[in-house]
């Protein structure tokens, strides 16, 4: 085991992180454009990416800021949207090697994302801190750089290209949901039910004020509870991988 762990070097982490980083570059670029388009200053958009490192939460976050939503709404929305990271953290904590002390856990947990978690938990050996830091490095740099490029340079792109790029992040969400939904009826029904709820709420919100942050919280809690009640997975199948 120790020999296998030896191979999980910082450099291997960097290599494994490169494909993730390239994907993040395009998505964060459109995040930068979208944020500035909503009236968020470029510096704030970059700060959001550097302190959050998460796609869905950030998109919801700028929606809430643009709508002037409250701090509690913001906190609840981030809690629900990013709750999956807690599950990933619990899962990952079973796979860390003995060099992983409290300080390393406190620092490296900042870098848990869907993709980084997926690559880390796919390793056969237990994970040393240096591999985790290597894995996080490039995605973090590219996420911040892409946001800066989109926020500062996005405006020079023709309007039609800016508009078309607005769909990139949703394309990524769709690509995360559909492959597992093909294999799991539970995921399929949860996704469809949540989409239906969200559409109904969007319709109702023409008449009474329901902000998008509140809407996502309502949909996620109801649809996930619906899934847990009607499509329970067996213990072994409940994992956080995507």
């Amino acid at each position: 085991m120790s020999e296998q762990t030896e191979q999980l070097s910082y450099k291997k982490g960097l290599r494994d992180g490169l494909p993730i980083a390239l994907g993040y570059l395009s998505v964060s670029f459109t995040f930068g454009i979208t944020a500035v388009g909503m009236g968020i200053p470029p510096l704030a958009a970059i700060l959001i990416s550097m302190t959050n490192l998460t796609s869905a939460g950030q998109v919801q976050g700028i929606n809430i800021i643009a709508a002037g939503g409250g701090y509690i709404e913001m906190a609840l929305a981030q809690l629900v949207i990013n709750m999956r990271y807690a599950l990933m953290g619990i899962s990952l904590s079973q796979k860390l090697d003995n060099k992983y002390n409290l300080i390393h856990r406190i620092i490296s947990s900042f870098g848990i994302t869907d993709e980084i978690f997926a690559v880390a938990s796919g390793q056969k050996a237990d994970i040393p801190p240096r591999y985790m830091y290597g894995l996080i490095t490039l995605p973090y740099i590219f996420w911040a750089t892409g946001t800066a490029a989109g926020a500062l340079l996005g405006a020079i792109l023709p309007e039609s290209i800016q508009a078309a790029l607005g769909i990139a992040i949703y394309g990524m969400f769709i690509a995360i949901v559909i492959p597992p939904a093909k294999k799991s009826r539970g995921i399929l029904w949860v996704a469809l039910f949540s989409a239906l709820l969200s559409s109904v709420i969007a319709f109702i919100s023409q008449y009474i004020t329901i902000t998008s942050g509140i809407s996502v919280i309502i949909c996620a809690v109801i649809a996930a509870a619906f899934g847990a009640a009607f499509f329970p997975q067996k213990t072994g199948e409940v994992t956080a991988d995507e």
């Binding site: 969400f173 597992p180 559409s199």
Partner: peptide
């Protein structure tokens, strides 16, 4: 556990449709 398992899919789906 089941609730946590379904949360990401519910969130992403609600954020995508109808936005």
């Amino acid at each position: 556990l089941n609730f946590l398992y379904y949360v990401p899919y519910a969130v992403l789906s609600a954020m995508t449709i109808p936005a």
